[in-house]
């Protein structure tokens, strides 16, 4: 039985798709058969971040409407043969995505995969609610910024009320992932600190992803940043993947970088 994880946030542009790609690729690197589903009907970004945009033939809605089989629509990742992407439709209208359709696709995937990661669209409306409805766990992506924290709080409210688990009286594990964190700006009082965000949202912390140039470089090339194991963001995402699996991993990248001996000697970035 696969574990279904929704990556959600309410607000757009906070790093959901980046997170979905890196958590998915990280789980695959650890040997888990993983599928990523893009629920952002009409926009479709996950395939770009994963670097498989030119191999998209069928999409989630084709599968729901019976125009393609799951096998035809799933794209195998170039780097990991246990990682698959089910892209979102770029053209169809959002109404084609139905609860019954999502349920059918997920149940067909249940026995095939260890993890199914759902990349939620922005907002708190139908699309975001469909992406979270069947989740067994949620990763709430939050930037240390007022509107992102507020939207995360609303998403947490929905997770506790509008999921299948909630309707059955269960509570799914929620994980807070604070991304685009800039310790320098936190230090000078320009940015909410990790403690502030944790204190306000009161959700257990999965990880802290620093604001990093490596993220843009990775998405330029269509490679999830977790593969860049020399980068801060790549390492931070891998730490988060380990925690997701229950490992205890110390928190890094919270303080300003202290340049090490080698990097001082050879310049570096």
């Amino acid at each position: 039985m696969a574990t279904v994880i929704v990556i959600t946030s309410g607000k757009g542009g906070v790093g959901k798709t980046t997170t979905c790609a890196s958590i998915g690729a990280g789980l695959a690197l650890q040997g888990h058969k993983t599928a990523l589903i893009d629920f952002d009907v009409g926009l479709r970004n996950l395939d770009l971040v994963m670097g498989c945009e030119r191999r998209v033939v069928y999409d989630l809605i084709n599968v729901i409407q019976g125009e393609a089989s799951l096998q035809q629509a799933l794209i195998r990742d170039k780097r990991s043969d246990n990682l698959f992407v089910l892209p979102a439709s770029q053209t169809r209208d959002k109404e084609a995505l139905t609860l019954e359709g999502v349920e059918q696709v997920l149940s067909e995937m249940q026995d095939e995969f260890d993890f199914i990661i759902c990349d939620s669209p922005a907002g708190i409306e139908r699309g975001a609610q469909l992406a979270m409805y069947f989740a067994d766990a949620a990763v709430i992506v939050t930037n240390p910024e007022v509107s992102s924290v507020r939207d995360s709080d609303r998403i947490i409210g929905l997770l506790q009320a509008r999921t299948r688990a909630a309707e059955e009286g269960r509570k799914i594990p929620e994980h807070l992932l604070v991304t685009r964190y800039d310790p320098r700006r936190v230090d000078i009082g320009e940015m909410l600190s990790l403690e502030d965000v944790q204190d306000i949202l009161a959700v257990p912390l999965l990880g802290l992803i620093p604001e990093s140039e490596a993220v843009l470089k990775a998405s330029n090339q269509g490679v999830p940043v977790v593969h860049d194991d020399q980068s801060d963001a790549g390492q931070a995402y891998m730490d988060a993947v380990r925690r997701l699996k229950g490992e205890e991993v110390p928190l890094r990248f919270k303080e300003m970088e202290k340049r090490g001996f080698l990097s001082r000697m050879f310049g570096g970035r």
């Binding site: 007022v146 507020r150 009082g189 320009e190 600190s193 502030d196 306000i200």
Partner: peptide, 14 residues
Amino acid sequence: STASVARDRLKIIL
């Protein structure tokens, strides 16, 4: 600090 203003505003609205 603007961050502490942000924190206080968030606590009230939430």
